[in-house]
Simulated scan of single mutants.
Amino acid sequence: MYDSPARVSAAGSPLALTTITEAVLPGIVEPDGIQVRTRPARPADPGQVVLAMEAAGISFAEQQMRRGKYYDQPPYPFVPGYDVVGRAVDVGEGVPGSVLGRRFAVLTKTGAWASHVTVEVNDLVEVPESVDSADAETFVVNGITAWQMLHRLAKVRPGDTVLVMGANGGVGSTLVQLASIAGATVMGTASPKHHDAVRALGATPVDYRNPDLHEQLRALAPKGYDAVFDHVGGEGILNSYLLLAPKGTLVSYGTASTRDVQGSSKAPVLKLFARLMLWNAAPNGKGAHFYNIWAGRRRRDTFRAKLHADLTQVFALLADGSLTPQVAARIPLADVAKAVQMAESGTVVGKVVLVP
């Protein structure tokens, strides 16, 4: 539709996009080793859209990628960034011009830590104009993850009792809110300094460092939990499984306990997979699953349709005030090292967001 990097914006004014700024992971480095570079801008190819980034998140996945520990990360160097919210400034052939100037969210997996991000038009999910971009960003990967684990895997219903490990984190805080909206009673683990925040989101907080944690959690739900959401993994996953009600569901979605462990990035995940498969095959009525946001992507149309439907519902809850965004900090892309350090510090509630 356009054939040069100098585009026309939705308002009709020239958009002289000549360079793009991006944060690059050159290898396994400390946060201050992440490089901020510029490169020439390229026009959108057919079926593509260029978004001017308004917000991009720092999630646990990128923290793993920095350590070379994410299960299927690309080879270095590459631009991280699991999700982005941005405004369309360029469209390729076959993309309606009406897309220009509108604001969208996209699940990218990599590439979002940049001033401009090129995406496929079919991956766009429109963001309500009444919603702040950083607020919306906190619910892209986190919202899809929480919604699908809660409603597509665990199928939580009103009256259920739910346990969220890491209730102060990005996904955890979203799970707490969505479970409460669904009518569940929610318990959430967090350090004491985050208990007031977790309580405000709708959960009963429990100190995850308590040596009697398992007994305390059992006392809060003597009949067991209908759903347990565990991002910690490691040997502690057994306790999560033992806390289930007779027909409860365990959903594992990470291996945070092995984040700093040296060695293979795949071994802890494969061990976890094997354990969950054995539990899930046991004839005791309990379910045990590993959530992978990319599962089913080979059936691309179905995958996109589910993602679009789920994120649209999350954005509707955000727009009507049912969901409270947890933005830990808004930090410029140029200060990405500071942003990553903060995200990895364990001292924040919610999500650290990069802004232009």
Rank of each mutant, 00 (worst) to 15 (best):
G86Q: 12
R87P: 03
A88L: 02
D90V: 09
V91C: 11
G94W: 07
G94P: 07
V95P: 05
V95L: 08
P96Q: 04
G97Y: 06
S98A: 15
V99R: 10
V99S: 00
R102S: 13
R103W: 01
F104W: 14
V106W: 15
L107P: 01
L107C: 08
T108K: 12
K109A: 13
A112E: 03
W113H: 15
S115P: 01
T118A: 10
V119Q: 11
E120D: 14
D123E: 15
D123F: 10
V125E: 06
V127Q: 08
V127H: 09
P128Q: 08
P128D: 13
E129C: 07
S130Q: 14
V131L: 11
D132I: 00
D132T: 00
V141L: 11
V141T: 11
N142E: 12
N142Y: 04
G143K: 05
I144H: 08
T145K: 07
T145V: 05
T145I: 00
W147T: 01
L150C: 05
H151A: 07
H151S: 09
H151C: 02
A154N: 02
T161V: 13
V162H: 00
L163H: 01
V164N: 03
M165E: 12
M165D: 10
M165L: 15
G166R: 00
G166M: 09
A167Y: 08
A167R: 03
N168S: 15
G169N: 07
G170P: 01
G172I: 05
G172N: 01
G172P: 01
S173Y: 12
S173Q: 13
L175D: 00
Q177N: 03
L178C: 02
L178R: 02
A179N: 09
S180T: 15
A184N: 04
T185W: 11
T185I: 08
M187I: 12
T189P: 09
T189A: 06
A190T: 05
P192I: 10
P192G: 12
D196V: 09
D196N: 06
A197R: 15
A197V: 14
A200G: 07
A200S: 12
A203I: 01
P205V: 12
V206C: 03
D207A: 08
D207R: 04
Y208V: 00
Y208E: 01
D212Q: 14
D212K: 11
L213Q: 01
E215C: 12
Q216C: 00
R218Q: 14
